[in-house]
Amino acid sequence: MNLSPEDVKHIALLARVRLDDSEVERLSEQLSSILDHFAALAAVDTEGVEPTAHPLPLANVMREDSVSPSLPREDVLRNAPATEDGYIRVRAVLE
């Protein structure tokens, strides 16, 4: 499997991680090599085998639909990088 620097840039965009040129170069080599090691999986016969997403046979775990207190707003906002009037302040979403 060969992941080109262009592929790496595309994945970085999907993952929203800024990479500099040397990181792109290094990840292109490293990810290609890691994926080569994983190629043997293709040879395992999995015809008709259900995928396992979760180790336990639990499904649709429900709880009572009851109201309980949330964390106090001021406690939560204390960790925010920027706040204003009890809200989190973010950068412009639209130009």
């Binding site: 929203r16 925010a80 990088p81 920027a82 989190i88 950068r91 130009e95």
Partner: peptide
């Protein structure tokens, strides 16, 4: 970088941030 933790405040748009 919006709700908690480290945030690069030099960025000018949301996506850049």
């Amino acid at each position: 970088g919006v709700r908690y933790g480290f945030s690069d405040r030099d960025a000018s748009t949301m996506w850049e941030n």
